[in-house]
Structure formats: structure tokens, C-alpha cells
Simulated assay, not measured.
Amino acid sequence: MFLAWNEIKKNKLRFVLITGVLMLVAYLVFFLSGLATGLKDLNRESVDKWKASGIVLTEESDKSLYQSSMFIDQLDDVQAEETAILGQLSAIAGNGEEKENVSIFGIRQDEFIMPEVTEGEAFASDNEVIADSSLKESGFKVGDELQLSSSEEKLKIVGFTDKGRFNASPVLYADLDTLQRVKYGEGAEANAERINAIVIKGDKLEGIITDDKLEVIEIETFIENLPGYTEQNLTLTFMIYFLFAISAIIVAIFLYVLTVQKISMFGVMKAQGISNLYLSKSVIAQTFVLAAIGVLIGLALTLVTGAFLPAAVPVSFDIPTMLIYGAVLIAVAIIGAVFSVLTIVRIDPLKAIGG
């Protein structure tokens, strides 16, 4: 460690460049990690709020809430500890100034998927809704009347709730009758008993359905089947993995070049009896110090950047995940240093000093 630190102090510029590259890679990895977490939250916030164990959809829906359609009386075919009915519709809602893509959930106020109101009050009359708080950032407020693209009905925001987005859209929570009027218009009475799903709570998911036209799906499986959810996460995850590989290659190249430049010096040291193990430890220690400094600076810059980002940017930093990624970056940097270690081991002292 003494040799490694002394060399860093003597050749500051070289090692600042290496640290700078590692810092930029770490910064990009951490930011992509935050983006991946933020986009996940955009898709699943409202579902996570249910704290449910499963959801019942029609078998022919292919695990899609949008494609599922059943009747309320099919609730009798589900033998779970707790159940809640759910109707759903996607629409564009506007308050005269702003427009947003929204997802409307038709629910019962006395069932467990009813959200907690953080501002205003719960819906109590027809066409009243509780809105996700992200809509406030777009200019919506309590008391706004919403015109929907797919209906003549107008909805009124009477309250807001936190973390209520579904498949990247803010959710409007309404009673089931309101949803039916919005969804079916003049045919609302004929479709009054139609819903999209039954949300369930309970430790047991097997054998709770007696209707072979229905299927129960674990909540995590349901989320993974949301449109674009899995593909989006895989894309960002692969980008992070590629950055790990790039980091190892960059460190390997830098340290290899530095090692080649110092072959004669290493040859003299080996001729003096300094072992390969000692020199190898020095290179590894040097790499660890540089990588640790780069990762810590990258982490700090990421958190500072996150503090100044507008709310519209879907970034959410999961510190435990970021720490794991930081440790992996340090590990792959050390792996990259192995090539320099192999070069040192192969140095012939006599040839290196011109003997």
C-alpha cells in the first residue's frame, strides 16, 4: 500500500485521469440505476399500494388488466381472505388548460384497495374522483372539473393521494358507478355489473377459484406482464452490465499502459529481491484506491444531480442497490488490473534492465 500510495502522489495527473474516467462510468451507472428504479415505480406504484398477494383476471386476457372483463357476481367464485373489485379505463383528462393520460380505477370505498387521501377528501358523490398527486405538478388541483376524451361525463377532483400511478399514468380513483358511466356511456346500465379484475389478499393463492374461466395471478407476475415493463427494465439492466464490462476494459488498458512504461523500474525492483506478490499487491491496492475514490465521487454527484432534477424526470435512487453497483464497479476495476499483474509476473529482471 505504501508503494501504491507514493506512486499516486508522484504521478497525480495520470491517476486523476483514471479516477475521472471511473467517476464518469460510476456516475452513469448510478444515474441509470435511478432511472430504472424511477421507471419501475411509474408502472407499479398504485399496485404496490394495494399490498395484495394476487389478482384474478379472465383466463383469455393473457394476464392483462385491460383485456380482462368479468361480472361482479363472479366474486362468489373466489374464496380468498379479502377481496376487492376493480374496474379500469384509460383516457385523456383535461381541466381546460392541461391534458394528461390517466388511468381510471372504479373501486368500492369500503374495500382494501381504497387509497389514503393526502389532500382534500374521498369521493362521496357521482363523478367525484381522488387523483394521483403527480397531477398537481401538471397544474391540476382540488375542485378541477375534468373533461375526458372518451366520454361526455365530467369528473371533479375532490382529493389527492400519493404514489398512485399505473403503467406510467396517474390514476383517478372513482366509485364503480362513475367508471361505468364514463366507460359505457348510454350502455352503462346494461354493463353495470362488469369489472376488470378482483384483487385478493391472503397467504394462499392455489385452489381459491371455482370458475374455470378465471385465473389467479401473483402480483409480481401481473406487474411483469404490464405493457413494456419487462422490456424496459431489461434494456436498462443490460446497459448497466455493459458499463461494468467497459469499466473493467478501461482500467485494464490504463494500468497496462502504465505498467509497460515502468517495466524497467519493476525489473530493478525484482532484481533487488522484491517479490511478484508484493508488486502485484501494490497494483491491486492502487486500483482499489482509484476505483473507490471514483465511485464515491460518482455517487455524490448522482445524489446532487437528483436533488436538482425536475419532478417530471422519473428518477428514484435506491441507496442499497447503488451501493451494490458501487461495489461491483470496484470489483470489476480490480479484475481489469489483473492484466497488469500478469505483465509484472512475466517481467525478466535482466532483460528489463538491459542485461
Rank of each mutant, 00 (worst) to 15 (best):
M1L: 15
F2T: 15
N6Y: 03
N6M: 05
E7F: 06
K9H: 01
K12G: 07
V16F: 14
L17K: 08
V25Y: 02
L28Q: 06
F30E: 00
G38K: 05
D48F: 06
K49V: 06
K49T: 13
W50Y: 15
W50V: 07
L57T: 03
E60V: 14
K63D: 05
Y66I: 10
Y66A: 10
Q67P: 07
S68D: 09
S68R: 05
S69W: 03
M70C: 06
Q74F: 09
D77T: 15
V78D: 10
E81M: 03
T83E: 05
T83R: 09
A84F: 06
I85W: 04
L86V: 10
G87S: 12
Q88T: 09
G94Q: 11
G94W: 01
S103L: 11
I104G: 04
I107K: 06
E111K: 11
E111G: 09
F112R: 02
E116R: 15
V117T: 15
E121N: 05
A124P: 00
D126R: 13
E128K: 07
A131R: 08
E137F: 05
S138Q: 11
D144Y: 04
D144V: 06
S149W: 03
S150H: 04
S151T: 04
E152K: 08
D162F: 00
F166C: 12
A168R: 15
A168H: 12
L172K: 04
D175A: 01
D175F: 00
T178S: 12
Q180N: 15
E186P: 03
A188F: 03
E189T: 13
A190C: 04
A190Q: 12
N191A: 09
A197S: 14
K201H: 14
G202Q: 05
K204N: 12
I209G: 05
D211V: 14
D211G: 12
D212K: 11
I217N: 02
E220T: 15
E220P: 01
T221A: 08
E224N: 12
N225R: 09
L226K: 13
P227G: 09
L234M: 03
T237M: 03
L243K: 10
F244S: 11
A245R: 05
I249A: 13
I250A: 12
I250D: 08
A252G: 13
T259S: 08
V260C: 00
V260A: 04
Q261I: 09
S275Q: 11
S275F: 05
L279M: 12
L279K: 04
K281G: 15
V289C: 03
L290H: 03
I293F: 02
G294P: 07
L296I: 14
V304Y: 14
T305N: 07
A307F: 12
P310A: 01
P314V: 10
V315M: 12
S316W: 13
P320C: 01
I324R: 08
Y325T: 00
G326K: 07
A333W: 01
V341T: 07
I344V: 15
V345L: 06
L350Y: 07
